[in-house]
Design a protein around this nucleic acid. Structure first.
Lengths: 199, 199
DNA sequence: ACTAAAACATACTAATTGGTATGTTTTTGG
DNA sequence: CCAAAAACATACCAATTAGTATGTTTTAGT
């Protein structure tokens, strides 16, 4: 995500960055290659030199922009957590209430793509891989919480991780229908209640 | 949803039914008017006689097909519930595991549309209206649970209703990325755990 | 049975789509 | 420095899109 050493690599990155921005806002199918290149200094020849078609670009987007981005905002803050439930809560709270690049109108980039492109095999497996990685991070956090006596040993970490991830996606989707952050606060309050039952 | 008394009304219903089927499977934007009429005995003239444009048809779809459908499968089973948490759980369990028209690949029709069309003001408010109605039904169920001593009075019914609806949407979205129903069983197990804390 | 409106049918259009063909320029290794 | 490959630029194309123009048929009230 951060090696525009060569000119060609920076062109490629410019495409992916602008594509992410547009697709996040307007969806994959309704973001045409034409508008992507119109919003960059890139021409069609350059676009199709770097990606053999639109879908290849979309897959690169998942792997090179979205995956690292989500790892940064979710996985990194959970490393070496001494208080799993509180730290997991905080990750989603800041994601919902303070993160500047993720907006209420546009929702969660990964959830959006999952909704729209899950019928496409390669998109589906790329996104599945992404979610499984995140779920694994959360589950691992819970497991180490067990080791330090902060999480009840009877808790099924994988189930909980899936439940938390899923509920977040759902909250993001509900949020797209509303104006204020009231829905997020309701969600977070109940998420906290739920997480507390894991101790 | 059930008055094809006149010939014209049955034409209109045929459009909406097939449109629902196609849009549920393939999304709103990627379902063209051309394929809708190709899959019915309806011509373009008839289509644009009944709906002034594609979006008007989409809105009718929400109001005349989806809303009644969701009321039937979610609200009706909760009427006069004597055991709120168990009945709420059962509604989502049957929705996830046994409902024949809602498939894993295609997910939740309302959640799909919310994801795709929330930027469109009229779609957003129609869908928001739909979700708020459902949340209200769930919240009301919880409130009457309080009256019969089955739900802890300190529970915030509206928050819980939003959390349950949202988590279901998220589970549906996660499910679209996977093959088996394992993810649903994980979700349901944790939903049950969560609902039990409300007693 | 008659007529006016409702309900439909057919043929078209302008814009947009993803992708290609065919070039020119720029970079890079020897 | 120089050739070959990499990187880009321009002009095009066939298919698909939502929507319209202009008809014909069907229905319903009198």
């Amino acid at each position: 995500m951060s090696k525009p050493s060569s000119k060609a690599a920076s062109t490629r990155l410019e495409i992916l960055s602008k594509a992410f921005e547009l697709i996040y806002k307007n969806g994959y199918q309704t973001t045409s290659v034409d508008v992507i290149i119109a919003e960059t200094r890139v021409t069609k020849g350059a676009f199709y030199y770097h990606f053999k078609n639109k879908d290849e670009m979309g897959l690169a987007l998942i792997r090179e922009i979205m995956s690292p981005g989500m790892m940064d905002t979710i996985a990194t803050p959970l490393q070496n957590s001494q208080n799993p439930t509180e730290d997991i809560y905080k990750v989603f709270e800041s994601l919902l209430l303070t993160n500047p690049t993720i907006t209420q109108e546009s929702g969660c980039p990964a959830a959006n793509l999952a909704h729209e492109m899950s019928a496409h095999v390669y998109f589906r497996s790329a996104l599945h891989n992404l979610t499984k990685t995140l779920e694994h991070v959360i589950a691992t956090t819970l497991e180490s919480g067990k080791a330090i006596g902060k999480i009840n040993p009877s808790v099924n970490s994988n189930e909980v991780a899936a439940f938390v991830m899923g509920s977040y996606w759902g909250a993001r989707n509900l949020g797209k229908l509303e104006e204020g952050k009231k829905i997020y606060r309701a969600y977070l309050a109940q998420l906290r209640n739920y997480l507390r039952t894991l101790s």
